[in-house]
């Protein structure tokens, strides 16, 4: 049937090939392998400890005025002072409530909308252009409008977080549907499943890890937005705390605010990771 393959001449020679090269084993630089847990913990501790030490050294060296760079001890004192005075708990609470409100609203819409867009090409064609356009409008550019419509209360701040995370959440949820093998859906049809069952009992469980990860990643954007909204107009909140501190040149309180935001962010991140591990055990590497 097929003609024999004719090889016209010998393959070209490589000049000076040298001794055979072999990949040397390495623990630190290994690709796509897990680190030994001990080493992993040590490196992770270093990741936090090193900048802290560096900060302490620079602050105590006197190279930078303490007005601009307070020492770690001064910042700890500031956190303690703000906490005891009762200002910090109120700030944390109000910022968190705004984030939770806006983000919960955004995910409540993004999960069904993104899933539908990922599943049905028709819904995708219907929604993707408009979502794609609005996504490029910076959420912060909506602040004037939100203030104009809803004043200076809680609602515009919640809505800013909502607007700023809705579209990314939707598109990322939509994307996670792409990775489901077509044959898994077809197998469900041959087991007697209808489209509704495929959507709820096959696609949704399959993308659940993707949904949780989407939330985890986009939570950072939510923090960004809430801080910006508080810089503009608020009587309390971590963003407000930072802008007041700047006005009175309290650098230690600016640092305190930033560190608290980082710590809460990290906590939420870890909570999402635990949720993934608990709710989608099948998708987490053992």
């Amino acid at each position: 049937m097929s003609d024999p393959v004719l090889i016209p001449h010998d393959p070209p020679l490589v000049r000076n090939p040298g001794p055979a090269r072999m990949l040397r084993p390495s623990v630190f630089w290994q690709i796509a392998e897990d680190l030994p847990p001990r080493l992993s913990w040590i490196l992770m501790a270093l990741s936090i400890a090193l900048p802290l030490v560096l900060w302490a050294i620079v602050a105590s060296s006197g190279l930078v005025k303490s007005l601009f760079l307070p020492s770690p001890a001064q910042v700890v004192t500031a956190i303690h002072r703000l906490w005891v005075s009762g200002a910090l708990p109120v700030d944390i609470q109000s910022s968190l409530l705004r984030i939770m409100g806006g983000f919960a609203l955004a995910t409540a819409i993004a999960i069904p909308l993104g899933t539908l867009m990922g599943t049905f090409a028709s819904i995708r064609s219907l929604m993707e252009p408009i979502v794609g356009i609005v996504r490029y409008m910076p959420a912060t550019a909506f602040i004037p409008l939100l203030i104009l419509y809803f004043g200076l209360g809680e609602l515009p701040k919640i809505l800013l977080v909502f607007v700023g995370t809705l579209f990314f959440n939707t598109l990322m949820v939509m994307d996670s549907v792409k990775f489901i093998p077509k044959e898994m859906i077809e197998a469900t049809y041959t087991l007697g499943g209808n489209r509704w069952q495929v959507l709820l009992q096959v696609i949704l469980p399959y993308i659940m890890p993707g949904i949780i990860d989407t939330c985890r990643v986009n939570m950072a954007a939510a923090w960004n937005l809430v801080i910006v909204s508080e810089l503009v107009a608020a009587t309390e909140g971590l963003g407000r705390r930072i802008s007041v501190a700047q006005r009175f040149l309290k650098t230690d309180e600016i640092f305190a605010g930033l560190i608290i935001i980082g710590a809460i962010g990290l906590t939420i991140d870890i909570l999402f990771r635990l949720l993934l591990r608990y709710a989608c055990r099948w998708s987490v590497k053992a």
């Binding site: 093998p181 044959e183 898994m184 077809e186 197998a187 399959y206 659940m208 989608c280 099948w282 998708s283």
Partner: peptide, 14 residues
């Protein structure tokens, strides 16, 4: 009424 077994693995991983 027509069951199907695919060449690729199509079990539900969860």
């Amino acid at each position: 009424d027509r069951g199907m077994v695919f060449q690729s693995y199509t079990l539900y991983p969860w």
